[in-house]
Each structure stands twice: as structure tokens, then as C-alpha cells.
Design a protein around this nucleic acid. Structure first.
Lengths: 161, 161
DNA sequence: GCAGAGTTACTCGGATAGTTCTTGTCCGAGTGTGTTCGG
DNA sequence: CCGAACACACTCGGACAAGAACTATCCGAGTAACTCTGC
């Protein structure tokens, strides 16, 4: 079980976009250059975020991406699900129905005990991610490294090197 | 992010082994036949469980697998980690160090805020899985479908069809 | 009848291909900007 | 000098390959039971 690297890219990029603000759009190329990432692939992640309504995109000159909602309204779970897809990591394939007692009606009435246990764990995971927003991350960084947001904004909105 | 199907196989198989008991070993072929699974691939999963000390293997005639510990001593997390590996799903690759301000010493002193948030969520997930054991699953099934454990044991230990 | 060595058949164990999903790349459609021409 | 039409350059967006991980399979090493022979 491995989470896509795109999730890490998307989370950092959303936080960066929060610091830039919604006054101007930042291109995928610029956002990628900030971390030396592949521009085309980060663009792909941003498209997924746009489909999920987390960022909004603008075409043409002076185009790019910006946050579509306030940072307080964007949870980490929103971003993770936008990249990874909404399906749970564990998917019960009901193998118990394939055995010699598979056609037992008990199997169809009661949910699979194992699937239930795994689903509970995944619910805990999602709840924790849902409870944290981009604004919360911002608050932590503002406290621990106050210089970062300002200079990030400056680099992303300023002229290229 | 998708969990291996082998996890589902391993969980069901461990529960079945708990019902069989440790008096006799069950071959991978027999365990696979119970759910119409690929025998060789389930064998691979059982090998992983053996390496993790969850089951013990016996070679030769009358050989096979049996639980190496009491069901109360086997958590669901033990099984999941045995199959999926111990590494977390989210792995911070420290992309913040690759940007224009990457060599900022602040980055090295403070842990990455995003990685911390994702790790917390994953810790919740693991805690939930750690808190449930094979014995707990057994108790639920004994309550909801009391006939299942006995007849499963009978099929696995009895003669082939 | 009993003990022991040899044979046999059965099991796990790791090395070997096939398939799906993730990662990475490319080029085309669409759009807003800047320019230029005419009034 | 002002307005509008035009051409342009820039951006996103989805379609197209490469690589990695998961899935599935096969055959060999090892082992314990069974058999047969000799005492």
C-alpha cells in the first residue's frame, strides 16, 4: 500500500496557493519550479484538484491556478481524495461467498466482519484528515517559520529568476 | 492508494486457522480451495505471515500451516503489516528542500508540517487495527453466525471433496 | 513380531513471467492580451 | 485621438508511452511418513 507522490505535491502546492492569495493566478510551471517538480505531471494533479472544486483554473496569458475556496474550507482529506480517488484502500471482494458454504444466506445478511474492522480503521484515518484544513497548516507554519509564507508568495508572484 | 488483495486473503485465512486450532496443520492448497483462491499465491502470503512469526510452517507429509500464537496475541495490524510491509503509506520526500529556499536551515530543524499531519492520520489507522485481534473477530462471528466456525473447521480438517 | 534403513510422496520456499496501476511526457484546443489599422 | 478587429502567444486539458508494483505461476530443496527387509 503506497500513497501517490502526487498527494505530497498537491498538499504543498495548495498551501503555497493559500499564501499567494486569490488576487492572481499562478501557472503550473511556476508552481512546479518552486520544488523542481515535473511541470506536466504537477499540472495533471492540479487538474484533478480543479475537477474536485479545490482550485480554479484560468486559461490564456496571465492564467494559471488559484484556490477556489477559503483555506478554512479545504480539508486535507479533500485534497487526498481528489488525487487518490474516493474509493477506500481496502475493498472487500467477498471471497467468503466463493467457498463451499458461499451460498449460505447468513453471508448475505450480515456484513463481512473483516471488512467492517478495516473500514472502521479507515474511517479513523479519514476523520483525522478531515479535521485539519489548509488554514490549520498555515497557522503552524506561521508559528514555526514565520518567514516562509511571505517569501514563498514573493517568489511565486515575482519575476522568474 | 490500494491495499493488496493478499491482505483480505491473509485475514480470512488467519481466522480460519484460529478455528482449526493448533493441533494440526492445514496446507496452503486446502486453505486456498476454501475460497477458490490461487494456491501458489496464497502460499506466498502465508510465507510472509511465517516470516512475521504469525503462523508456523511444517514441511513434508501432514505438513502445512498453523497459528504460531494465540488468537488474542495476533492483532489485525500484525497481519496487515506482514503482507504490506512496515513502511507507512505516505512517505515524505522532503520536496521543500529542493526549491529556491531548500537550503534554509529552518527546514532541517523543524519536521515537515504536512508529513506530520499525514503521519498522525496513519497513526490513528494503525491504532484501530492494533486494538482488534483475531480473537475479537472470532467472538463477533460466534455471535452473529455460530455455525460458521465449526463447519469451517470440519471442512478444512476433513477429507477432500 | 520388531527394528531400522531406504524409498516415496508430499510440502514449503524462492526464483520466474504476465498484468494492472502509477508516473511521466507530449501536443492540440481555447482564451485573453497586445497590436494595428481605420475612422 | 479613439475604437474595433485581428493576429499572436500563452495557458490549460486530455490523449499517449515508460516504469514500477502487484498478481500469478512454476519447479526444486527438504522433510516426514510409509514400506520392506532382515533379524
Amino acid at each position: 500500500m503506497r500513497m501517490s507522490d502526487g498527494v505530497e505535491w498537491a498538499l504543498h502546492t495548495c498551501l503555497n496557493l493559500a499564501w499567494v492569495g486569490t488576487d492572481q493566478a499562478v501557472t503550473a510551471t511556476r508552481l512546479a519550479a518552486f520544488y523542481e517538480l515535473s511541470p506536466a505531471y504537477l499540472n495533471k494533479m492540479l487538474q484533478a484538484l480543479a475537477r474536485a472544486g479545490i482550485v480554479s483554473s484560468t486559461s490564456g496569458p496571465k492564467g494559471g491556478f488559484r484556490l477556489a475556496r477559503a483555506p478554512e474550507q479545504i480539508s486535507l482529506l479533500d485534497i487526498v481524495l481528489a488525487i487518490e480517488g474516493p474509493e477506500p484502500a481496502f475493498r472487500c471482494s467477498e471471497i467468503r461467498q466463493r467457498g463451499p458454504f458461499g451460498d449460505d444466506p447468513e453471508n448475505h445478511h450480515q456484513p463481512c466482519t473483516i471488512a467492517t474492522a478495516l473500514a472502521e480503521a479507515e474511517r479513523d484515518w479519514r476523520n483525522r484528515l478531515q479535521s485539519q484544513t489548509i488554514a490549520d497548516l498555515d497557522a503552524v507554519v506561521e508559528h514555526k517559520a514565520p518567514a516562509v509564507p511571505g517569501r514563498t508568495r514573493g517568489w511565486l508572484t515575482g519575476a522568474p529568476d
